[in-house]
Simulated assay, not measured.
Amino acid sequence: MIGIEATSIFEPEYIETAADLAKKTSIPEKVIIEKFGLRQKRVARESMHASDLAVAAGRGILENIDPKAIDVVIYFGSPFKDYQVWTASSKIQYELGTINAFSFELMNVSSSFPVALKVAKDMLYSDKDLKNILLVGGSKESMIVNYENPRSRFMFNFADGGAAALVTKNPTKSEILSSSIITDGSFSQDVLVPGGGSVKPVSKEVVEKEEHYIDVPDPLRMKERLDPVSIPNFTKVIKQALEKSDASLEDLKMLLPLHTKRSMFTEILGNLGLSDKQAIYLNEHGHMSALDPCYGLYLAEERGLLNSGDIAVVVSAGTGYTWAATAIRWLA
Results as ranks from 00 to 15, higher is better:
residue 193 V to D: 02
residue 110 S to Y: 09
residue 183 T to R: 06
residue 1 M to P: 10
residue 317 A to R: 03
residue 284 E to A: 03
residue 137 G to C: 07
residue 85 V to G: 00
residue 244 K to S: 11
residue 149 N to L: 04
residue 316 S to Y: 07
residue 74 I to W: 00
residue 278 Q to F: 09
residue 30 K to V: 14
residue 225 R to Q: 12
residue 192 L to I: 04
residue 113 F to T: 11
residue 208 E to V: 06
residue 256 L to Y: 10
residue 145 V to T: 14
residue 112 S to C: 11
residue 27 I to S: 04
residue 257 P to C: 10
residue 162 G to R: 01
residue 201 P to W: 12
residue 96 L to V: 03
residue 145 V to W: 07
residue 292 D to Y: 12
residue 184 D to C: 03
residue 26 S to T: 13
residue 99 I to R: 08
residue 310 D to K: 10
residue 94 Y to N: 09
residue 83 Y to V: 03
residue 99 I to Q: 08
residue 155 M to E: 11
residue 59 R to S: 05
residue 170 N to P: 00
residue 3 G to Y: 12
residue 132 N to K: 03
residue 63 E to Q: 14
residue 270 G to L: 03
residue 223 K to C: 01
residue 69 A to P: 00
residue 137 G to L: 07
residue 54 A to V: 05
residue 97 G to P: 08
residue 128 K to S: 14
residue 65 I to F: 04
residue 30 K to N: 13
residue 8 S to I: 05
residue 115 V to A: 00
residue 4 I to W: 03
residue 63 E to C: 04
residue 82 D to S: 10
residue 227 D to V: 15
residue 193 V to N: 03
residue 223 K to P: 00
residue 153 R to I: 09
residue 94 Y to C: 06
residue 272 L to E: 06
residue 267 E to W: 02
residue 236 K to I: 01
residue 60 G to E: 06
residue 302 E to A: 15
residue 264 M to W: 13
residue 327 A to T: 08
residue 148 E to S: 14
residue 329 R to S: 05
residue 267 E to T: 13
residue 322 T to W: 11
residue 89 S to M: 04
residue 171 P to M: 06
residue 173 K to G: 00
residue 121 K to T: 08
residue 255 L to M: 14
residue 323 W to C: 11
residue 264 M to K: 10
residue 165 A to M: 07
residue 35 K to E: 14
residue 301 E to Q: 13
residue 33 I to V: 15
residue 110 S to K: 05
residue 184 D to T: 08
residue 103 S to G: 02
residue 34 E to G: 00
residue 210 E to C: 04
residue 74 I to T: 01
residue 92 I to P: 00
residue 279 A to I: 07
residue 135 L to F: 05
residue 255 L to E: 03
residue 299 L to H: 08
residue 132 N to I: 01
residue 281 Y to E: 07
residue 131 K to N: 15
residue 204 K to H: 09
residue 150 P to T: 11
residue 223 K to H: 12
residue 306 L to I: 09
residue 233 N to M: 11
residue 47 S to M: 02
residue 85 V to A: 13
residue 204 K to V: 11
residue 22 A to F: 07
residue 226 L to K: 05
residue 220 L to C: 00
residue 21 L to F: 09
residue 267 E to C: 02
residue 218 D to V: 02
residue 90 S to N: 11
residue 39 R to M: 10
residue 169 K to C: 07
residue 62 L to T: 03
residue 170 N to H: 13
residue 8 S to N: 04
residue 17 T to S: 15
residue 253 K to M: 07
residue 249 L to C: 12
residue 105 E to L: 04
residue 263 S to H: 11
residue 297 L to F: 15
residue 155 M to R: 01
residue 256 L to F: 09
residue 160 D to L: 08
residue 217 P to L: 05
residue 147 Y to S: 04
residue 43 V to K: 13
residue 260 T to I: 13
residue 84 Q to T: 11
residue 24 K to D: 01
residue 187 F to S: 05
residue 198 S to F: 11
residue 308 S to V: 07
residue 242 L to F: 10
residue 158 F to V: 01
residue 183 T to P: 08
residue 282 L to K: 09
residue 235 T to V: 13
residue 17 T to C: 04
residue 40 Q to T: 02
residue 203 S to N: 07
residue 276 D to Y: 12
residue 9 I to P: 03
residue 32 I to W: 11
